[in-house]
Nucleic acid binder design. Structure first.
Lengths: 263, 263
DNA sequence: CAGGCTGTTCGCATCGTGAGAATGAGGCGA
DNA sequence: TCGCCTCATTCTCACGATGCGAACAGCCTG
């Protein structure tokens, strides 16, 4: 479906360009003839996806995409359930708290509450980060069935981001086992330099991880010992969200990890 | 460009449906043959715009749209400039404060800070509201050139929402004149029952209104006298945002309104 | 076994394609 | 003031890819 593919490519091009683009620029960058570009622009404009920049002959995406994105977001009751817990956690630790879901093998930020302590996180809703080197991602991976873990890691690889990123499959399997033992995941400077992060999964009624919540802090404010304490509290708080999603905590003898394997 | 139009219609259909849809449902609702739907789904999925719902053969929009929408949003420095002022205003009045821009003859919410007083606003970023019956919209209309005002009102009409909505063109022209005199716009229960709202425009370096900021409250907490006081404070605060956007307050003798007419 | 729904395949008509020309609005220099 | 540029946009048209619709193969449920 070539014409549709071109239209989508144009949307992406416009989204990633810092400024509005002219038809000619689009033609050059997408390697599509001018007349086709004009037809695409016309169709997209008719549907309200793009608008002309006021004076100039340049085009940019409209805020319609913002609307559509938020309608997708709004549809899930996860957000409502998680928001008060995000607030509580942020207030308690004074650090930034994130909510993210897995999609297409990566974690997508849906919501955040920034901590009161100064700390620059360049996250926006919709941003995607890898799973193998983040607390959010490992928390979810640990409770996914083994074959999905293999598929995800196989597809995206285990790219190193810092000296401490886990880059071997065997190492990751072991790491996920210890995540299940602890109940929370730890990103010990595995993704961004100088940042530690703890994350816990939100489980749905079947015990499948549908999201994760994390607390991030610079290493100066979060030692490994503090991370452990934070992790315990995080687990308890996130269990509340899982409960709201229909997850029944299993009987004493069975561990959450083993249950989640069943699918 | 039929195929592109269909793809966009499908995106909108998926966005407005509360749940994920199957191919058949889409085919029926869009009146497009099944085989075409499958090919569209495939193309959209290949580009990451839609994903299959876990087990079932249903499709929903991915969070990619959220990402694209926020990238559009991020590009403007209006947000950064406005955020602290939104916070200040919200803290001061304990009411919800909105930032919106005009697009395609309607106001689009870009940001909000909720007030601490209990009050349910069902606004999300990207939501669109009419201009003729909201403080946000009237604040912008008042500073747009007359022909654009005519075009916008002509295109969208002056639909009544409450008993107090201004529904005549002459009435609106008069109203906009008084907005310019005061410097802020008042929505006196013209859009939603029981809600008053004051709004002031953000002007860019040419004096063209590029956005508006409003404070909303239930009538029980905002009398007309309070609205006047709120309006004055709002004007002063929003002038700061206009300044950040390059707007130079004109000399003593000339009124902002008259300047903005020049285009 | 019938009657849903899902997903694929295939020949033929249609629709999108791309090169170029036509239009039209400025801008520049003479 | 008049050509003579350039640049943005639309139009035309013949070709050929591509999307259409019907028919088919699984796969459920009642």
């Amino acid at each position: 479906m070539k014409s549709v593919a071109k239209a989508l490519a144009m949307i992406e091009e416009l989204a990633s360009s810092p400024r509005a683009l002219s038809a000619i620029q689009l033609s050059r960058q997408l390697k599509v003839p001018r007349s086709t570009i004009y037809r695409l622009l016309q169709t997209l404009a008719r549907h309200g996806f793009i608008v002309r920049e006021d004076g100039m002959a340049c085009y940019r995406l409209s805020f319609k995409l913002l609307d559509l994105g938020h309608r997708v977001l709004e549809r899930t009751d996860l957000l409502e359930a998680a928001r008060p817990i995000l607030r509580d956690l942020s207030a308690r630790f004074r650090e930034t708290v994130h909510l993210a879901v897995e999609e297409d093998g990566r974690m997508v930020y849906l919501d955040k509450v920034e901590g009161s302590a100064p700390f620059c996180t360049h996250s926006r809703p919709g941003r995607r980060v890898p799973m193998h080197c983040t607390a959010l991602g490992k928390a979810v991976l640990a409770y996914l069935p083994a074959e999905r873990v293999r598929a995800i890691l196989g597809r995206h690889g285990l790219q190193g981001h810092t000296a401490r990123t886990i880059v071997s499959y065997a190492g990751m399997v072991e790491e996920l086992e210890s995540v299940r033992r602890r109940g929370y995941a730890l990103d010990d400077v595995e993704f961004e330099e100088g940042v530690r992060c703890v994350g816990a999964p939100v489980l749905d009624h079947r015990g499948v991880p549908m999201a994760a919540i994390s607390v991030s802090a610079p290493v100066s404010r979060m030692s490994k010992a503090q991370a452990r304490r934070t992790g315990k509290i995080l687990c308890a708080a996130v269990a509340g969200v899982s409960g709201a999603m229909g997850w029944q905590v299993p009987g004493r003898r069975s561990r959450a990890g083993s249950v989640s394997r069943v699918t």
